[in-house]
């Protein structure tokens, strides 16, 4: 079982993942870029920051922490991470969306590292709650992490799970909200606002943490604190992020979900940000 210590330079790693994600999108414009850029620091802190226990050679090892990336299509940035950690060969990154590859535009559970079906939105938290309950019953000390987008929280099934998790005191359950504020057709505040999301979750019996989602050190510290805290309440980290982070024209643009930046722009960005 592997748990990364703090020897990895998280900032450098996050930058590398950002570059790799742009490179994948340059090769494969069918992938969703903007929503994959907002959670990069969250993923890097989880997997390199000593939060998630994993076994790349035995992805379903009993001793692992369970991580569900419910906002599936916004997780192309997980591909370089899983490859880098040894879940599958790095060469696979060259074949995203190609015939014979298992790395699709929306990740499927055949990809080593992915626990469940991701991308059909609003499923991860309920399944994660079931896993968290099972771990409690098995007296396992492992934790469950579920990464969702704020747009995804429009799906009502999440709120069924949110009520369930506090009722059953699932303090091994950690929700991470990539709160980039934008779904496909615009700002979530203008579509159906979550108001102050943390206040809503607190009202539902959750503990809430708040963080600048692009400060990977702060994210790592918040996740560490959240994972340790097991006081009878499920926990949520609301990460303030920017959709399309670091890409001019994409960053925080209301239609960023469906905008594909030109290859020349990506080339220039990669050159300017070695």
């Amino acid at each position: 079982m592997h748990l990364n210590d703090n020897s990895v330079d998280l900032r450098k790693k996050a930058h590398w993942v950002w570059r790799e994600t742009l490179a994948i999108h340059r090769r494969t414009p069918e992938t969703r870029l903007a929503s994959s850029l907002s959670p990069i620091e969250l993923f890097v802190a989880l997997y390199y920051g000593g939060i998630i226990r994993f076994d790349a050679k035995n992805p379903y090892a009993e001793g692992r922490d369970r991580c569900i990336i419910s906002k599936g299509h916004g997780s192309i940035s997980m591909y370089p991470i899983f490859a880098d950690l040894g879940f599958f060969p790095v060469e696979e990154l060259q074949r995203v969306c190609q015939t014979g590859s298992f790395l699709g535009g929306i990740p499927d559970p055949v990809i080593p590292g992915y626990e469940t079906v991701n991308g059909s939105l609003g499923h991860g938290l309920g399944v994660g709650s079931g896993i968290a309950l099972a771990l409690k019953r098995k007296q396992s000390e492992r934790s469950v992490f579920v990464v969702v987008g704020d747009g995804e929280l429009h799906e009502g099934a999440n709120w069924e799970a949110i009520m369930f998790a506090s009722q059953h005191r699932l303090d091994n359950l950690n929700l991470i909200v990539d709160n980039n504020g934008i779904s496909m057709l615009g700002y979530t505040d203008e579509i159906v606002s979550h108001g102050q999301l943390s206040a809503r979750l607190v009202a539902f019996g959750w503990d809430c943490f708040d963080v600048d989602g692009h400060d990977v050190i702060a994210v790592q510290q918040a996740l560490t604190q959240m994972k340790i805290k097991q006081e009878g309440k499920p926990k949520a980290l609301i990460a303030r992020t920017l959709k399309g982070h670091g890409v001019p024209g994409l960053e925080n643009a209301p239609l960023s979900h469906i905008i594909n930046p030109k290859r020349e722009l990506i080339d220039a960005l990669l050159e300017q940000n070695p």
Partner: peptide
């Protein structure tokens, strides 16, 4: 476990329990 009048969560929680071997 009674999940309440919440069939979507019934299925999701059941799936999670099954993934853990129940």
């Amino acid at each position: 476990v009674n999940v309440g009048i919440a069939e979507q969560n019934l299925i999701n929680v059941s799936a999670g329990l099954a993934l853990e071997g129940y």
